[in-house]
Design a protein around this nucleic acid. Structure first.
Lengths: 170, 170
DNA sequence: TTGGAAAGTCAACAACGCTGACGTAAACTT
DNA sequence: AAGTTTACGTCAGCGTTGTTGACTTTCCAA
């Protein structure tokens, strides 16, 4: 594992892309790219009283309208106290609407208001601009590879959530 | 931009991979994958008094031994006060060594100690395990695409830093 | 009817970003 | 030689976002 090679010896395939050095570079690429990935929405959010956590909540409520708090908790991977702080401000500011469940009145179903949808548009438009130009520059084959690797990198539960959202959205 | 298509009309190429929905899925993939990406080192760090910021500092000091504080600042993209808080504990704990510059005595050159290198190994081994299995599963072509997209996604300055590190490491 | 899940709240805390201000030493620039 | 800039460290204070722990209310289900 610390031998400078990704694996010992294999059935003749070229596994040079699995060397520690290659993996190290990929780790750095993830780090730098993620910085770029979040930079654009972050710039918008600083002006308002919001942060990245608000963006994430808004994103997933838009993506899965009517989702419950518990479900959102699973998607975001944070504690309910942490999410609650964010949701409270979003509801108070009229960006998110929380309605008691019909069949199960313990649950709260979350929806974006008109204003919430507007902010979501602004944020995701900003984020997509970078993505789109990167995708266009890299080309369809690179993009396919990109997504394949990201998907295999996720924890199984995250992959499951991701796939469900994917089916929903088309 | 909110028309459900990535672009309006083009010279006959298939640009379906640039639709808003495709980009939205990619954004979610980045989010979920990055969670996985940081999960393993994070688990190790909680036991010690360290966090992700310590990991990043250790990573880049290992990667660019003898780097100055200023240079590290640029790589990490944080303020010197933020970095200093992290460096102070790492130096106090004997993981990082800071030596006054020879030619320019204002500079501090940073190196990992034996203990620092040991921790770096532990952390990056943990992180590479996931990367390696994802890479192996996805295959070389997917990995190449993955890296291409990440690189085009970076801010130009970050890409520059990334490339310089790449040349250094081989 | 009682146990427990779901949701919300309060309090306290930690990691890690930020700004602003200040100090020191070394290195440049004029 | 004097003045300015650069590199670094540090203090103080603040904001976002994560955490635990404890506690209440609501309400479904056994």
């Amino acid at each position: 594992m610390a031998d400078g090679r990704g694996t010992s010896s294999h059935s003749g395939e070229n596994l040079l892309f699995l060397t520690d050095e290659q993996l190290r570079q990929a780790i750095e690429a993830m780090f730098f790219a993620y910085r770029g990935f979040t930079a654009d929405p972050d710039r918008i959010l600083v002006d308002m009283a919001y942060g990245r956590a608000h963006h994430r909540a808004i994103h997933f409520i838009n993506r899965a309208p009517g989702t419950t708090v518990n479900n959102l908790l699973g998607l975001l991977g944070v504690t309910k106290q942490s999410l609650n702080r964010v949701l409270r401000t979003l509801i108070a500011d009229g960006l998110v609407q929380s309605q008691v469940g019909k069949s199960d009145k313990r649950e709260r179903h979350l929806h974006l208001t008109e204003a919430g949808r507007a902010l979501e548009q602004t944020l995701s438009d900003a984020q997509r601009v970078r993505m789109r130009s990167a995708f266009r520059e890299a080309g369809p084959e690179a993009v396919a590879g990109f997504r394949t690797v990201l998907e295999t990198m996720m924890d199984p539960e995250m992959r499951h959530s991701y796939m469900r959202l994917k089916e929903n959205g088309g």
